[in-house]
Each structure stands twice: as structure tokens, then as C-alpha cells.
Design a protein around this nucleic acid. Structure first.
Lengths: 248, 248
DNA sequence: AGAATAGTGTCTTTAAGACAATATGGC
DNA sequence: GCCATATTGTCTTAAAGACACTATTCT
């Protein structure tokens, strides 16, 4: 504790004259691809003192106190570095921190999850942005070792997503701007991994002010469907009850 | 970024060779006193480079990487320093961090809320543990300035508590080990700030396996009431729906 | 016409809301 | 018996579950 108190260019003093943990942000970026919930993972590169080289990990990294105004800013930066998405749905899952999770020392991480529509995304491969890939969440098993405690962080993010999908309009952020009610129901079913009642679903969704009709219709080899869009994309909608809970 | 990379006794290297934010934990400790929801606040002491001297703040402080095994351990330590409570209900609210919230530099905080039964608690006054006091949450107004961004952190903790009380057994942790159904209902009403239907409340609570009867009865100047205790104190119970929502 | 999906209707079920009725122990 | 609170019951209501039925476009 002697010559400490100065890190980088900023002076510290008073109660702050203590060893500081490492601080990072990790983001679980979800998207639905081919009727499956996917998560974006990147392969960690080899390098001096780089832990877990070659393993997959959630996109993330240390706070840059020069670049990042705040935690969300950091999460958005990580997201932008890996995908071209600028303004996705972003929500904090929580934070974790202990002495052991990073071999480089006592470390904390702030975990966010993001929902995006994958069709609009171009993954930024190569360069210093290492291997980036979509993986179905069903492929994230104990056999597939993730770096650090990212398996646990991912599980927490997925659990939060699934639980909140039961009573909110979250899945709408996984769709393109315009979609049909059937599209929306399918996305719910993909995330929740169970079928929903069509009639109850439609009544429930239309009972809220979540959607507004687009004066257009999707045609196909069958009866065309009304297109909708979010009435207020910034505003997450809460339903009065959960969807039919799985039988116990 | 020249001679950085060493803070205290631990070496850092690689990607960790960057300026680190300050890391703290803050705890909103709730209790019901005289039929009012209270929160524990402490008055910040004057001192060299101590920000916000004299203002009230949530109990909290920097992570001690030597003492604290993890974030929850740190939260429990803060709690134990201010109250004599060892094992309360503790839940993370979230984390916040930006360049401005602490004048000493880029800082992050991990916020928890705790629920305790105040009758069992002895506040640790004086010493280096500064003024500690219970304040009704209704007294936390903009006029009462709190240190740092603690007004916002407190508001987030209170909002989380209130919203989760709508569909969980959280308030049971604000009661002593044995209580009557009327006690429990009163606590819900105190936290939610609205009356609940007696009949629906009882049916709903007894329909879960939240409680078990204690072979004892509370007598008084009226019909005695059955005493209950938590069947599984570690296990938070979720109700299938929310309580009757406030009229809109 | 037939396939396929969109959209509606009807009846049941679940759990809460409103409110009344009954129960019990101390005084 | 009276008071005060505990406990139960009855009827209504809100919203979902189950499932069938109708609608519309394309081939």
C-alpha cells in the first residue's frame, strides 16, 4: 500500500487509497436465427497474459475510463465493436465480482443483455475483433467450456430474458420493424420453448397499446396477414399476467 | 499510463494495464417500524477528501480486496458493521457507474437491498461507525439531499422492493420468525401503501407452501390468531398473479 | 377446390375482488 | 353479552386455456 494511489494519470486519495478491482462489462447479445434463440460469442485470442485463449466468451472487456461515460456507454461500445447495431434493446442483468473469477486479480463485471434482429446485423470478423459467431443457446452446454465464469453469466442473462418474456413485450425487439402477429407469437414460442394459445395471445397483445397497424399486408401462399409495428419502441410493455405457465 | 499497473501489492498486466475505476457496494436496508417502511441511513463524517461530509448516505463503501471474498460478502460486511444482523434477506438491485458520480474519479457501485426485522436489531452508534439512523422512506424527499447519487440508488432499491412485493413473499422477511396472517397482510399493506382484500390475501398465501402452522396461538383482547412461520426461509415464493393493482 | 395460414368465437377454468357472515377469546 | 379481530363463504369479475370455426389468398 506504499506508493499506490496513482493509477494511470488520475490521482486518488483518502478512502480511495486502496487496491482497486478490475472492472469489466460483458454483454449477452441475443437474436433469433432460423427459429432458434442464438447468442453472440467470440473466441478469445492468444496473447501475453491473456486468460483462456481459444475459448469462447461473451463480448466484453474492461471499462475504458477515457472513452466510456458510463456503464451503458461501455456496453454499447462493446456491442458496436462486434456488430453494426447501434440502438438495440439493452438491459442490465446484474453484476458479479470476486477474487477468483479472473486470474489477473479481484475483478467485477457488469452484465447486460441485448436483443437485436439478426437479419440487420453484419458481424465484424477478423481484424482485432476476434472470431465472432452466433451460437444457438441450446449449444451452450457444460461440454462447451466458456471463458471465465461466462457460462454462469450467460445462464443468468438467459434466465432473466426467459422470465421477463413471460409478462413483457421483450421479444418484439428480436423482430424487424414490421411484423405480423404470427411472427410475434412465433418469437415468443422460440424464446419460451413452448407453444402458446393463438387466441389468448392475440387478445392479450391487442388489449395493450403495444402495437399499431401498418397500412400494409404480408402476402404469401396463404391468407395475407396484417402488419404491425411498435407504437412506442422505447417503451417496454408489461402484461397483467404471465403467459400460460408450463405444467408442473 | 506510464508507471501504472501496480496498485497496492498486486501486480497487473496485459489488458489489465489500464486505469481502474473505484468499486464500492451500497446497501439499502429496509425495515418496518411503527407501521412504516424505514431505511437505514448514515451521516457521512468530515475528513480529508471525504466527499459530502454531513450528508446522509446509504451504508456502503469500497470493496476491500483483502477482506471481501465477493460482492455479497462485502454487502454482508457493510450490513454487519451497521447492524448486528447476520443473515438477512439480501438481493442485488443492480450496478451503476460513471465518471461523475464520485468526485474522486470514475466509480462503480453495486447496490443491494436487505430486509430485516427491526425489533431484533441494535444499531451500532458512535465509534468509527458514524451516525446510523432509521428514516421512514416517505421522508426521503428531494429536500433531504443524500450523498452521491444515493437518492437515485435508494429510489431504484425501493422501486424494486415495491414491484417485487406485488408477486412474491418478500415482506415475510420484514417480520419476526413467527407471525399471524394479519401481521403478514399488514406488512404487505405498509410496503404497497394500499389496502388488500383480506379474503383473497389469505386464500392466496395459504394456497402456496409458503407458511406452516406453529402449534401456538397469539392471544389478545379479541379472537386469538393462528401463528405461522416460513416453511422454507431460504426460498422466496412467487405468486401466480400480482395483487390487485392500484386503480388507474 | 384444396392447402395453408389468418383471424374470430364459445365455453371453461383460475384466481382475484367485493362484501357479507360467522367464530372465538378477553373483558 | 359485547368488543375486536380472526376466519370462512358466496357471488362476481377479469383474463387466460382449450378448441373449434370461419376467412382469405394463392396455386
Amino acid at each position: 500500500m506504499s506508493q499506490a494511489g496513482k493509477v494511470g494519470s488520475k490521482a486518488t486519495f483518502g478512502a480511495a487509497l486502496i487496491e482497486r478491482p478490475l472492472v469489466s462489462v460483458d454483454v449477452a447479445i441475443f437474436s433469433v436465427i432460423d427459429a432458434e434463440l442464438n447468442v453472440l460469442l467470440m473466441r478469445r485470442q492468444p496473447g501475453p497474459h491473456e486468460p483462456y485463449p481459444g475459448l469462447l466468451a461473451l463480448p466484453g472487456g474492461f471499462i475504458d475510463v477515457a472513452k466510456d461515460r458510463d456503464l451503458i456507454g461501455c456496453a454499447l461500445r462493446k456491442l458496436k465493436e462486434k456488430t453494426a447495431v447501434a440502438a438495440p434493446y439493452l438491459e442490465q442483468v446484474g453484476s458479479w465480482g470476486d477474487a477468483k473469477r479472473d486470474p489477473r486479480g479481484w475483478s467485477t463485471t457488469h452484465v447486460y443483455f441485448a436483443l437485436i434482429n439478426a437479419e440487420v446485423v453484419a458481424l465484424k470478423q477478423g481484424g482485432n475483433a476476434a472470431d465472432v459467431q452466433w451460437l444457438p443457446v441450446s449449444a451452450i452446454t457444460p461440454q462447451l467450456r466458456l471463458a471465465f465464469d461466462h457460462a454462469m453469466l450467460f445462464a443468468a442473462a438467459l434466465a432473466r430474458l426467459r422470465s421477463k418474456v413471460e409478462y413483457t413485450s421483450l421479444p418484439a425487439y428480436l423482430l424487424p420493424r414490421e411484423f405480423t402477429l404470427s411472427d410475434l407469437q412465433s418469437i415468443y414460442e422460440v424464446v419460451l420453448q413452448r407453444p402458446l394459445e393463438k387466441s389468448a395471445f392475440r387478445t392479450r397483445v391487442l388489449a395493450t397499446d403495444l402495437l399499431e397497424e401498418v397500412p400494409r399486408i404480408r402476402t404469401g401462399p396463404n391468407r395475407p396477414a396484417q402488419l404491425y409495428r411498435l407504437r412506442n419502441p422505447e417503451q417496454l410493455v408489461f402484461f397483467p399476467r404471465t403467459f400460460n405457465p408450463p405444467r408442473d
